[in-house]
Amino acid sequence: MAAGGDHGSPDSYRSPLASRYASPEMCFVFSDRYKFRTWRQLWLWLAEAEQTLGLPITDEQIQEMKSNLENIDFKMAAEEEKRLRHDVMAHVHTFGHCCPKAAGIIHLGATSCYVGDNTDLIILRNALDLLLPKLARVISRLADFAKERASLPTLGFTHFQPAQLTTVGKRCCLWIQDLCMDLQNLKRVRDDLRFRGVKGTTGTQASFLQLFEGDDHKVEQLDKMVTEKAGFKRAFIITGQTYTRKVDIEVLSVLASLGASVHKICTDIRLLANLKEMEEPFEKQQIGSSAMPYKRNPMRSERCCSLARHLMTLVMDPLQTASVQWFERTLDDSANRRICLAEAFLTADTILNTLQNISEGLVVYPKVIERRIRQELPFMATENIIMAMVKAGGSRQDCHEKIRVLSQQAASVVKQEGGDNDLIERIQVDAYFSPIHSQLDHLLDPSSFTGRASQQVQRFLEEEVYPLLKPYESVMKVKAELCL
């Protein structure tokens, strides 16, 4: 049975990233139509530049190519590739079939990587351009969430054990800070992308030097003109047959890092959902379990974690691919890159769409948070109580021993009897502590235990987050809708 299948058929496997999760716009960027249309555009740009620099290419040939950029006979191309065992030459023939007058000058002087690699770089750039505003929107939604809850005390956790208090907004800023680093890295790697350009079979530009009869300047002009037509500021000066596969490492490393950030955020949300302090959106008709109707599973956060793990592992592909590119190139890269580049971007696209949807509907339960604080705060307040007693004339050592005994009794009630923490009640009825009984409410005010959390939130948002989001103001209103 021949390899390949009808990918629109229910009898043929289709990647869930495309069929179930990723956005239509990201799927289109990695589609065959987008790819092969870009090949034709690159052939047109090459012909236009070659004509401008004096090669015998007519206006009629150029116009014929322009008129057929979208006229792609995919069936013919597939048949040609089956016959020739070469995808680029299959599309040269297919393009030439609908451009008979231009057929002889299509791909003039070029090698397969002229269309293959340059198209990949265009796709990487455009895919990054799709991700950047999506990530900015996630940051914006979380920034709104953090600002609104900047002063809401909550129990902090280290080692997932109760620690000092923080605020809900401050905790959210930990998430935002990681995503801001990801946004900066995505922008950097996007701006650092260079075009492969017009380089020939081993990167020496020998074929173009021959076409222009040894004119170095025209060869350099050709490279520059096509690079500018493709919208790049610069091209690699040095290439082998391909652009260095280190570029793929750079791009997928940034995406993998984004995956790590999203995994951490969504894990926190899942843990908070278990504590009943916070939940992701839950639709009115949504079913959490087929057997347990009360369940409210954090399905979206779980999906993000599941896909983020996949995204983090994909960076190993370009690392290994770059390491086995012998001399000017081997074909070890080809099949692998067809999979890992598309999957990385479709996965990143999915987790950003999902995280935006989550961040637009996060639900906080202040009463649950308050109750958990009441359970733990008495123990945390013991040092403040000791200091207040010393100020009232008591002995630190005597007070410490009193607190120690009462704390152990209260802990026994919590752990052995399943009761509430009654340390404060014990202190309130103990005559030894009568000098500070009137101060206990103040000493137990949760806001006095959150330090500068709310001020940190305000400063972080104003100095770091809002300036970073400013270039994306025009796209901030787009909502994230999930079908599944």
Rank of each mutant, 00 (worst) to 15 (best):
297 N>C: 05
308 A>S: 12
401 E>A: 10
161 Q>M: 01
482 L>Y: 13
320 Q>M: 15
320 Q>C: 14
230 A>G: 05
165 L>C: 01
158 T>Q: 01
173 C>Y: 00
416 Q>C: 07
77 A>D: 08
400 H>E: 11
34 Y>G: 11
228 E>D: 05
350 T>D: 03
333 D>T: 00
276 K>M: 04
207 S>V: 01
58 T>P: 06
171 R>D: 02
303 R>Y: 03
444 L>P: 04
178 D>G: 02
135 L>W: 05
22 A>W: 12
218 K>V: 00
283 E>K: 05
116 G>I: 03
375 Q>F: 13
2 A>P: 12
178 D>W: 03
345 F>D: 04
120 D>C: 13
43 W>D: 07
377 L>M: 12
95 F>N: 07
398 D>A: 13
477 K>G: 08
481 E>I: 03
53 L>F: 05
401 E>Q: 01
48 E>T: 12
418 G>L: 14
395 S>C: 06
258 L>Q: 04
484 L>S: 09
47 A>N: 13
260 A>D: 02
195 F>A: 06
178 D>F: 03
59 D>S: 08
49 A>F: 00
245 R>I: 04
385 I>G: 08
250 E>G: 10
385 I>P: 09
447 S>A: 00
321 T>L: 05
453 A>Y: 05
109 G>T: 03
427 I>L: 04
338 R>A: 01
376 E>G: 03
308 A>M: 12
479 K>E: 12
220 E>W: 05
143 A>F: 14
67 S>N: 12
399 C>W: 07
166 T>V: 15
229 K>E: 07
65 M>L: 00
314 L>F: 04
328 E>A: 09
67 S>E: 06
380 M>L: 09
43 W>E: 04
379 F>A: 06
354 T>V: 13
253 S>K: 07
443 L>M: 11
187 K>R: 09
243 Y>D: 05
221 Q>A: 03
168 V>T: 02
139 I>S: 14
472 Y>I: 15
433 F>W: 06
271 L>W: 10
273 A>M: 02
191 D>W: 05
151 S>M: 04
265 I>D: 10
286 Q>S: 10
128 L>P: 08
380 M>W: 07
17 L>Q: 00
398 D>Q: 06
85 R>L: 02
203 G>C: 05
464 E>W: 15
425 E>L: 07
183 L>V: 08
89 M>F: 00
257 S>Q: 09
7 H>E: 10
10 P>W: 14
